[in-house]
Amino acid sequence: MSSEHQLFLNRLKRTRMYIRLAQLGLVVSFFALWEVATLLGWLDSFLVSSPSKIWQTVAQLHAVGGLYHHIWITSLVTVIGFVGGTILGTFFAAILWWWPKLHLTAQPFLIVLNSLPKIALGPLFIVWLGTGYLTIVTIALAISIVTTIIVVHNGFTTIDPLKLKLVHSFGATKWQSFYLIVLPGSYQTIVSAVKVNVGLSWVGVIAGEFLVSRAGLGYLAIYGGQVLNMHLVMTSVLILCVAAALMYQAIVFLERINWRNTLTGP
């Protein structure tokens, strides 16, 4: 390696380190300022809580033993929501791709459903499905499924026409052109749908927990609000931040694995 290159790499490394330090500094000073402001009475810790109070709340929840249960429940339902939303959405997109006339018929209804705020269906799901997790999962699914259908179907129908021409000339059946070209060719579209659905699923699950649940981070937040325990509300919001960030990182990690090549073989 030339000395110039070495210098260049060092400079790159240093820039990266400074950025990390700046980010860390921002987080630390945010929490420090928050703590100091409540200690000195600039802010009312009854309303905005404070880092030390949040820490105490976490410790309490940990001692009582409920903390991990809440985190687990909410994360699990979220995962079920976005995995289910993506799989079902892709499945219906495939059905609509298979029967274009069905798609033409369904299109206006899809547009209406897509613009409908799905949370408004919450009361219906409660009456139909009860006040359990089934309702929460359904809300999460309802939020992500329609956009998934629209986006993935669009991916299916914009596959390179030359590739389709090629397989048709080999005499491919419709099913063959689907699993050889259309589905693997829409891999990127489906991956982006998954990423969007992770966010939508969190919204659905938290909203669902506001409405019906007796456990979970959304439940903790709404319960804290009802009994005016802002420490509890802030605690659940912070944990939610961390959980959502971790889940996003997990998705990014999974994306790096080349599933398409692994699954479709040689």
Binding site: D160, K163, L166, S169, Y187, R260, P266
Partner: peptide, 14 residues
């Protein structure tokens, strides 16, 4: 009959 087209149309995932 078999085609050779404007683009090679190779499938990136194979």
């Amino acid at each position: 009959s078999a085609y050779m087209l404007q683009e090679d149309c190779l499938l990136d995932w194979r």
